[in-house]
Design a protein around this nucleic acid. Structure first.
Lengths: 225, 225
DNA sequence: TTTAAAAGATAGTAATGCTATCATAAATAA
DNA sequence: TTATTTATGATAGCATTACTATCTTTTAAA
């Protein structure tokens, strides 16, 4: 049985739907590779076009600019991750077990998912860590938000917030704790690799330790009164 | 009694020390204003030069590029904040009281400090919130780190980590918790203003609630076992 | 098989991110 | 005080980036 996972993306993100054409799928695939390789600042549509073997103008027919392309692939990731979470926590009744699974999913380097042929989730996870917050840390955040570009991130945050409430119905800050888990799963990873003295994981550089830290943080917060 | 607070900056950050000349101090002053106004991406040396009334080439005599200028002003802020913390927690013996003061200092919008004539700390605080992580979320982070550009941030993290250990000597993740407090003090603020559904502070939009959240997070983590 | 949609090829333009040079003003040392 | 270093101003230029426009050819759906 071979399944293709399809994620419905916000139409305002693109001029032409990249999923519908070979070139479009190549834009997604190669932009993930190039952003992971060069970083978002040094990534240009010209390099992307050369990498694909098309022209700059060709890319502009799909995406207005590189910022919207970044938001696209990041939004795709959050949607994909929400699906992963709902899949992996399906039939799990204990919310504590659910929350632990969520933390593990957030903090673990993803393996490439074969049901999405042109997206390399592993590279995408690296992009989320290094470039993820650049999607919203801009002056246009308000405009972008009006277009609902951050809905997948918000939905994920709501899902996690609800699991937190299942664990501890009286906990006062489920959403802020959810964003804290999400952001810290990535920031601690970035720091561990690049600025290890900002963390307590410099010696082993193991994701498992980030998971232990996050579990400790989350469950001591929500378990008490 | 009039005091001038002087912060010793890393010499590798600039070509010519901006503190030593009128133009240099203008570069710092106006870059803080313009980055706060336009955001870092839209900020250019040309706009800065026009704003000051000098030429682009003039700016380049002080800073190699805008990324190093950003690191400069952010590093300045962390150094200034570490000084504020050491000043405000001086003579405080109870580490819990100290840590609460630190959280408050991190999460509260700064008022302009008159002892630093050409730096507007209030605007700088806004820049830290929106642009702070862009200083290190780059492909050059390793190179920049070799030059010790992030030392002020690391020092602050160490100071806070030590206060955490004073509170709870057996706590396992003092540095990661310190970076979590620092980053979340700013991210929750950004979210509260720009993407409020990612937080639990959307209704009142009050910094005091972020402080309550962080206090709850931190003290439940370190108080047990 | 026509015809519309997508892609390729090429050009061009304003802004960005620099570097270089030469003249002048201001500060400092001889 | 003069000499000379140091900082600034003024101007030019250049490669890259971030687009927009147009025209032709290929591909694919009606």
């Amino acid at each position: 049985m071979k399944l293709q996972l399809q994620i419905k993306m916000n139409e305002d993100l693109f001029l032409r739907n990249p999923e519908h054409t070979e070139l479009g799928r190549n834009i997604i695939k190669h932009s993930i590779q190039l952003i992971a390789q060069y970083g978002f600042e040094a990534f240009t549509f010209k390099k992307l076009a050369e990498d694909i073997g098309t022209t700059e103008a060709g890319i502009y027919r799909y995406f207005e600019n590189k910022h919207l392309l970044l938001i696209y692939i990041i939004a795709w990731y959050w949607s994909w991750l929400e699906y992963q979470i709902s899949f992996q926590t399906n039939n799990v009744t204990d919310p504590v077990v659910k929350l632990k699974k969520v933390i593990k999913l957030l903090a673990t380097t993803v393996v490439d998912d074969a049901t999405t042929s042109y997206v390399n989730e592993s590279l995408l996870h690296q992009i989320i860590i290094s470039e993820g917050s650049k999607a919203y840390l801009t002056k246009q955040v308000g405009e972008d938000n009006k277009h609902q570009f951050f809905k997948p991130y918000k939905d994920l945050c709501a899902v996690i917030g609800n699991i937190i409430l299942e664990c501890s119905p009286k906990y006062k800050y489920p959403r802020s704790l959810a964003t804290t888990i999400i952001e810290m799963a990535h920031f601690q990873n970035f720091f561990m690799i690049n600025l290890p003295s900002l963390t307590d994981f410099g010696k082993n550089k193991a994701e498992s330790e980030i998971i232990l830290f996050l579990n400790d943080l989350v469950f001591s917060s929500i378990k008490k009164g």
